[in-house]
């Protein structure tokens, strides 16, 4: 088993037939269990990098390795996304007609887990993130902070080894942001999850083991 959770090798990503050069040769290595923050100005390529690491997009050139396995060679990228990776986005993206536990359990659907087991997993995680009393609530009945915490629970439901977060505290107040960061710390410390968090917030970046800055599609520092 590789001690390196994520390796990006000379990642280049162009859009619009090369007119937009989002990444211009980024290489990085993240150890298993490490907490990384990626900062940088808007449009610098942070989200693009996260999408490449998360197998949501493919690089124009270069390669991504997850625990030593080249993502481009992975036969079932859906399985990789569903089992190894967990995503938290700036917006919670909860499905409005599903109850909180059903939203949290969504990543478990493709794994063929029974409804009872899905619910048990989701309820346990909702309790862990302080939403035990909201299990059967629809998202519309929850506050913004509660929804974002539910989104974190959803990212963890399949016990991923890597947590990727794009501005997870960007749309919540300070207190909620703090609770979400504590959830991240709990996930990394208790579950050994590797995390990469994109943030504009210096306080969030300071709590990471290491901060990488990306400017104009290139990593600094």
């Amino acid at each position: 088993m590789s001690d390196v959770a994520i390796r990006g090798v000379d990642l280049v990503k162009h859009y619009e037939h090369g007119l937009v050069k989002a990444l211009r040769g980024v290489s990085l290595s993240v150890a298993a269990g490490e907490r990384i923050a990626i900062t940088g100005p808007s449009g610098s390529g942070k989200t693009t990098l996260l999408h490449l690491i998360g197998a949501l997009d493919v690089p124009t050139s270069g390669r991504v390795e997850i625990f030593g396995e080249d993502v481009a060679a992975v036969r079932d990228v859906n399985h990789l996304r569903g089992r190894t990776l967990g995503f938290v986005f700036q917006l919670h993206h909860l499905i409005p007609n599903l109850r909180l536990w059903e939203n949290v359990a969504l990543p478990a659907h493709p794994l063929g887990i029974s409804r009872r087991e899905r619910r048990a997993r989701a309820v346990a995680l909702l309790e862990a993130v302080g939403l035990g009393a909201r299990v059967d609530f629809l998202p519309v009945k929850c506050s913004g902070g509660e929804r974002q915490r539910a989104a974190v629970a959803r990212a963890l439901v399949n016990e991923p080894r890597i947590l990727l977060a794009d501005e997870p505290t960007g749309s919540v107040d300070r207190a909620t942001g703090e609770s979400i960061l504590k959830l991240f710390e709990w996930a990394t410390e208790e579950r050994g999850v590797t995390s990469i968090t994109i943030t504009h917030n210096p306080e969030v970046a300071q709590r990471a083991d290491r901060t990488l800055e990306i400017v104009d599609g290139l990593l600094r520092g």
Partner: peptide, 16 residues
């Protein structure tokens, strides 16, 4: 659209 994007991101296959 965004919901479908999310489902794809969390591991739902095209077939699903």
């Amino acid at each position: 659209t965004r919901e479908i994007g999310l489902l794809r991101a969390i591991g739902w296959s095209r077939l699903r």
